[in-house]
Design a protein around this nucleic acid. Structure first.
Lengths: 250, 250
DNA sequence: CGTCGGATTGAAGGCTTTCAAGCAGGGTGG
DNA sequence: CCACCCTGCTTGAAAGCCTTCAATCCGACG
């Protein structure tokens, strides 16, 4: 594994694939074949799809740089955004057992990924127990991640709560990927955020404007800044208004 | 593994743990130790919790009979329902890597589970490659299941869409567990459904009443019947002129 | 038979959407 | 350099959906 890291990308230590790639660097000899299975820093153009709904996938990916969105197309032909892949996320793990992809995954801007062949990985993990064990660990992490998404974003009572929870969630993911938790690129359109959260562009605009006026966040040129994290997390949980009164009455 | 199946429970073939339990019956000799790790048909009383928020878990479970809910308690002390475990579901897989549970998991009524010791499983899967591989497969299925939840339930534009999607989702899970997809027990209170979906009891009541009047579903004594599946799935996707007209004509 | 948790129904108010119009800013070609 | 365009963002007003609050009903269970 050559050290050819590119500026602005995720450190390998913060990458979800590290558990799969690590054996290579630790023990180059034994794991030489793994190198063949891995295509590092592959470029993906804006709008390009790395996997498609109802198709089997040939490779799984990890996002080094950029953001992807997962979408499904409903019977009416409308696109529904069902998830985002931020730097450090892995794509396609749920299809490793040769099932078809449930979603389209598309780059929202120029992106870099590390690509791993599903066929090669499936061969290799039979040969190398450590790879198999690390894959299991990766799957558990991914499972936990999905659970976190559901906990954070499903069942929000108001639009403001949903959006705040979304921003907190993105911030957490960016921190986990080794970036600043308070200032980062958010190359996602309001339309996509709204679609994902079940809201409208206009509502996102109004709420962001409100949050900016209240000095909770800044947002210019696709760059998000979290000014008042405490306030943002407060917005992300219900019954914030009553919190003070509640304490007073107790 | 004695064949002591109990009426109304999930068939082993439809259980998520089958990939772990199967080796036992296939090859009793080699996998004898696994039997110790497994406690079949353990009773869980209504309100009893099989895992708790911020605590490590000792066992993972699969639901043979009954329904569980997963909840988190927010800073204000309010309970938020973040998921349901229907028959055939597995509980706790995301905490296998000795991480703490993110949620409380509580039985909504008298239930039966198969319990597997985490410590024993972690020992055994190092010894038995087949167990390790099957565990990976189980994790992938679980991952896909979480993805399905997000796709089905996150980002619904209206309350009706959300509830219809929820019912379709439950129906699908019941079918997968080997029960009827159109008539099944739904021992979940409106309050819990509402909490999960980010709605209110009253809204669930009104929507269910409406759906009953339109002969889409029946619901009495905690038993749900799906009368018009086509209409229900239509309600579960964003409203269009066609969909509305279709329902209106009933 | 009374109690209690859960479900139902109505009225009023608020939040979000819908519809419509205008703005901003980056890229392109002249 | 500027006009132009296109995408995405902003803002306002009206309509509609969902919540809130409050009262009542129902059924299970001791």
């Amino acid at each position: 594994m050559k050290n050819k890291r590119i500026k602005g990308t995720v450190e390998c230590e913060n990458c979800r694939f590290f558990a799969l790639c690590a054996p290579i660097s630790i023990c180059d000899k034994d794991y030489e074949p793994v190198v063949d299975a891995l295509h590092r820093y592959k470029k993906v153009a804006r709008g390009e799809k790395v996997c498609r709904q109802s198709r089997s996938i040939r490779s799984i990916y990890t996002v080094c740089k950029g953001v992807f969105k997962a979408t499904v197309t409903d019977p009416h032909g409308d696109e529904r955004v069902v998830g985002f892949y931020l730097p450090g996320s892995s794509i396609g793990l749920e299809s490793l057992d040769s099932a078809n992809s449930s979603v389209d995954v598309e780059a929202l801007g120029p992106a870099l990924v590390c690509e791993m062949s599903v066929a090669r990985l499936n061969e290799l993990r039979k040969q190398f127990p450590m790879l198999q064990i690390n894959l299991s660990r990766l799957l558990m992490q991914e499972l936990r991640h999905y659970q976190d998404v559901v906990i954070a974003l499903l069942g929000s009572r108001s639009a403001e709560e949903g959006l705040a929870a979304f921003l907190v969630y993105v911030s957490t993911r960016m921190r986990d990927a080794g970036f600043s938790a308070d200032h980062f690129d958010l190359p996602i359109t309001y339309a996509d955020i709204a679609n994902f959260l079940g809201l409208t562009r206009e509502t996102i605009t109004r709420l962001m404007t409100k949050m900016k006026k209240q000095n909770v966040v800044t947002y210019r040129g696709r760059k998000l800044g979290i000014i008042d994290r405490k306030a943002l997390t407060a917005l992300a949980t219900p019954a914030t208004e009553d919190a003070n009164a509640e304490i007073a009455t107790v």
